[in-house]
Amino acid sequence: MAKETSERTFWGRLASWGPYHALMHLATASPRRQFLILAAFPILWILTQHLGPMLQMLRVSLTDAYPVAPGVEQHFTLENYARFFGDSIFWQPFFRTLIFAGVFTFCTLVLTYPVAYFLARHVSRKNQMLFLLLLLIPFWVGEIVRTYAIMILLGNTGAVNLALKTLGLIDRPIPFMYTSFSMGVGIVYLTALYMLLPLYSALEKLPKSMNEAAADLGAGAWTRFRRVSLPLTIEGISSGCTLVFLISTGFYATPVLLGGPSTTVFAETIAGFFHVAGDEWPTGAAFATIMFMAALIITTVFQKLMNSLRKGDKK
C-alpha cells in the first residue's frame, strides 16, 4: 500500500529507478564514503577559490616579474617588500590608512551605540523591527551612490554650506570637500550599519532587570552605562569594531572621490601599481599583503584585548 503511493510521485519513481538506486547504493555504502562525497566539492571550492587568490597574491609578491614575459626567467625575491620599508613615501599613506580606519571606527562606535541602545532597550518588541528596518533602507544603497550623496551634502554649494549661510553663520562656504573630514563623514556613513547590528544584538540579549537592579541600588545613568551595559556588550563592540576597521581599510572609491591629495590612502597606492604596466604587479601584491597582515594583526590584538577586558570584569 505504502509502496504504491510512493511510486506515483516523482521522488518515488526516482528512488526505484535502477541506475539512481545503484548510484545511491554505491555512494552511501559507508558513512565515510557518504561524507567524502558531501565534503569533496566544498573543500575543493574553499581551497581553490577562497584560499587560492590570497596564496597566489602572496606568491606573486615574492617574484620579480609578473606576468612573466616570454623568454624572461622569474626569480624569487624580497625586493618588493624592501621597496615598502625602504621608502618613506609609502609609509605615509600606509599609517594614514590605519590611523584613519581606527579613528573612523571609534567615531562609528560612539555614534551608533546610543542608537542601538535606544532600539534594544526603549522600543517595544513589536516596533523594534520597524525602527530597525527604517535604518536598513539607506544601507541597501550602494557605496558609490552614497558617496555621491555625501559629495552633494558637503560641497561648496552643498546643503550644509547653504544652511550655514542662510543662518548667517558664514559668509564664504567652508571647504569641507577633499579633506579628511569629508572622507570621515563618508566612511562613517558607509560603515555605520556594520557597527549597529552587532551592538543591537548584544544589547538585545541583555536582560532589562539588570539595569533596573542597578537603578534600585542607586546607580545613576552614567554609572549604569559604565558598570552594567558597557561591560556586558563588549563582545558586540569587539566584533562591530573589527568588522568596521577591516572594511574601512579596504575603501578605494570613497577616498578617491571624497579625499584630496593630502588624504591619499594606501588603497590608492596599491591600485596605482595595477593601472600601469604589468611588471608593477609584484609590488602591488606585496603592498596589499602588507596591508592585509597589518589589518589582521591589529584586529587580532584588539580582540584579545577586549576578551581579557571581559574576563577581567567577570572576576
Binding site: G250, F251, I270, A288, F292
Partner: peptide, 12 residues
C-alpha cells in the same frame, strides 16, 4: 578581506 585587497587578489 578588505575591499581593495580582495579585488587585487581576484585580479591576480
Amino acid at each position: 578581506v578588505p575591499g581593495i585587497i580582495s579585488a587585487i587578489a581576484f585580479r591576480i
